[in-house]
Structure formats: structure tokens, C-alpha cells
Design a binder for these strands. Structure first.
Lengths: 209, 209
DNA sequence: TAGATTGTTAATCGATTAACAATC
DNA sequence: TAGATTGTTAATCGATTAACAATC
């Protein structure tokens, strides 16, 4: 039975399922049961069936799940075939590294442009992505369809820049600044990568085993 | 009452508390109640008191918490004053960006060395951190105390490299490869930064609001 | 003292796990 | 058909929230 409200915990497991299924595909596995999938992922079979059942009926009794079909269903749920468009704000070391190394296309995103304040990079291209002046942001956003912005800018300007982008109608933020961004509009979504938080939890766990 | 088993959910909130308290400190706030802290962080006062009570009694009835003191207590719990030592494996775009931009010292870590296979970077220094050949890994680890390694290497060599490091006794992995690493030793801790997983959850949420 | 706020116990809520009828 | 495995309902477990006596 499809559910109305999907919990955050379920959503966060979806990319892991997708990753595991992609791996199974590449290993040539055709079908898999919730039990075997659970063994590989350290998740109970019950949870797997519960999770999938939030979105539909993808399996077959007595058989299990077709790997390729299930992968494609979960990809669809995650929106990898939605042709999302993205621009990057801030092309410092980290922004540069993402443009060079992160496979945006594998998650269904196209990077159309990047913006920075430094004359040294404005007008150049990184991995095929043109870098414009942050002064041209308003014009650009009004003329293009942008689903998500990546914030790879200094902490100090994070909330201000986010506000500027929200005023332009941006509703998806992939936030790499170590700042908790917020909005009064519940339709605006923030996804944070907090490096420091992550390393601190590791610090805690190596000190408390 | 101090608890024996701290749940993962609590641990993951600690760095956020630490961040918020650092901010309060810098704003000159001296004391705060669980209620006001909760308002600022969008957490119930109950949860805050529950969380803190896992580790001790840091507040005072009728007063609340001393911001600076509480910050220091939580920092101590997280291990920021433990003088953890860290080496980086793989100095590509991302490794480079982290060495240049991430403030390791703010989380109590010292980066002593980095390793790579590329002759172009071996022997050089990035932000004061010497880059050695991956061939010298064994010797180095045996001669130095290393608490955590950062894995910023290609997916394809992730698990093998991790195994090699585990054999050398490394028990803390900050893993930036999009691979689920595992170990049979429960004392080995992995903390993953899965960029793709993060962006996919954002993709899901902008498509389903 | 009176008001505020803690730490903790009890109640509620939600998520995970177990069980099982349905059925391929 | 018999065995396997699903989707779903019920039971359990754990985490969050509410309530309150203790006390600064």
C-alpha cells in the first residue's frame, strides 16, 4: 500500500538501495530476494519490503525482485530521470574539485554554469562549465531554469547568498558551508554536507569504543 | 543519569549543538536555557535536556546552561581536545581541496601527511602537508601514530586500500569514496561522506513537495 | 521568597521487526 | 503441485515529547 508520508529514514536509505542495485546489475545479477539483499546490505528483509512497499509493488511472490527493474524504479523515485538543472555558487578549491571530479550526470543533474567573485576565474571554464561573475546571477537565473544550487562559498556569505537565491525563486540548496541555513518557505529544501560534523562524529566514536 | 549506550541519533546532534554553542559564544551570549536553545535550533527543550543528560549534569535549575562551559563540555565529549592525528590517502582534486580549505584543527585533528601514487605530487607539499608515495605507507604508519585516515581515492581501489590500512591497524576511516566499506572488526569505525546519496535525497525532495 | 529551569520519570509516538496469508 | 517469497498487518522496540518534583 502506497504511503502518503514517507519518513526521512526511508528516503535516506533509497540512495543506498540504488547504489547496491547498480552494483548488482554490473555484477550481472538478475534477480534478488529481500533476504539476500538484506544480507548484503546489513538490513533486515522486513525493512526492505516495508521500504519498497511505500512506493509500490515491485516484487513477485516466490521470485523476489528483478534487479534491473527495481533499480530503475528506485532511480525513478529518486528523480534521476527528471533532467534537473543545477548551478554552482563559489568556485574555490571545493567547487573546483566537485566540477572536476563529481559525476553529476549519474544523479541526473546537469551543471549549466558556475558563479564566482574572483576575476581570476570569471570567464574561464572548468570541465566544460562556464564561470560567470556573481553580478550576473540575477539575469542568469531569470533566463534559465535552475532546480538546485550548490553552495561552495565561505561561511560568512552563506545565509546572505542563500537569501538572494531564494528571492530569485531557487528552492533547492546543496549546502557545503558549515552553516545551518533556513527559510520560512517549507517548499525550500536544504541538503547539507557538513564536513566538520561528520569528522566530529568519527572523533567521538574512535574515542568511545 | 549517565547512559551506557548513546544512540546514533544523539551522537549526530552533538556537533550541531557544538556549532550552535560556538556561535552563541562568538555573539557574546553568556547563558541559555534549553527552551531558547531549542527555539534557535528547532529542537524541543525536552530533547535537549535528554541529550545532555546522557553525559552529565551541565545545567543549573532556574538558570539554564553557561554557554562557554557547555560548549567546552560538548567539545570534550566529541574529543576535540584529544589531539587526534590523521593522514590523507589520495590527493586528487578533492583531497587537495580539503587540505587547502578544511579547518581540520577546529575539529581537533592534525594532518601529518598525505599519500598518493602520482609522481607529479609526490614530494610536494600542500598547505604545509607533505605528500609521500603510497609505497611508503607501511613504513610511515608503523613509525607514526595515526588515528584516522581520510580516503579521497578512486572508488575502484577503495576497499583494497581500506583493507591494507586495516592490516596496519588503522581503526578510523573518513570515507569520501562512494563505496560502502566494511570490516569484521567492530572497533573499526567508518564515517562516510556520500556526495551522490546526499544529492539524490535532495533530488527526491524537490520532486516530491 | 517566588519564578525559572533543570534532570528524570512516565506517556506517546514512530520506526523496526516479526508473523503470516496470499500467490507466483 | 510444493517451495519460495512477497506485501501487509500486528507486535515490539526505541526515540521523542510531556510532565513534574527538585532546587537554584
Amino acid at each position: 500500500m502506497k504511503k502518503e508520508n514517507i519518513s526521512d529514514a526511508v528516503i535516506r536509505r533509497l540512495p543506498r538501495y540504488y547504489r547496491q542495485l547498480t552494483d548488482l546489475c554490473s555484477r550481472g545479477v538478475i534477480r534478488i530476494s529481500s533476504h539476500s539483499l538484506g544480507q548484503e546490505m546489513n538490513i533486515t528483509a522486513s525493512q526492505i519490503r516495508q521500504d519498497f512497499s511505500c512506493f509500490g509493488e515491485f516484487g513477485q511472490q516466490g521470485y523476489g525482485y528483478n534487479v534491473e527493474e527495481l533499480r530503475s524504479e528506485i532511480g525513478h523515485i529518486l528523480g534521476v530521470d527528471n533532467d534537473h538543472h543545477l548551478v554552482m555558487i563559489g568556485v574555490g578549491n571545493l567547487g573546483h574539485a566537485l566540477l572536476q571530479g563529481f559525476l553529476f550526470s549519474q544523479t541526473g543533474f546537469t551543471v549549466d554554469a558556475a558563479f564566482d567573485v574572483s576575476p581570476a576565474v570569471i570567464g574561464t571554464t572548468v570541465n566544460g562549465v562556464p564561470i560567470y561573475s556573481l553580478n550576473d546571477l540575477e539575469t542568469y537565473i531569470q533566463e534559465h531554469s535552475v532546480d538546485v544550487v550548490v553552495l561552495t562559498i565561505p561561511q560568512s556569505v552563506a545565509q546572505d547568498t542563500a537569501n538572494r537565491l531564494m528571492n530569485l525563486g531557487i528552492k533547492g540548496f546543496w549546502n557545503f558551508t558549515n552553516v545551518e541555513l533556513s527559510s520560512s518557505d517549507p517548499d525550500v529544501k536544504f541538503e547539507n554536507i557538513h564536513f566538520a560534523d561528520s569528522l566530529l562524529t568519527l572523533s567521538y566514536r574512535i574515542a568511545n569504543r
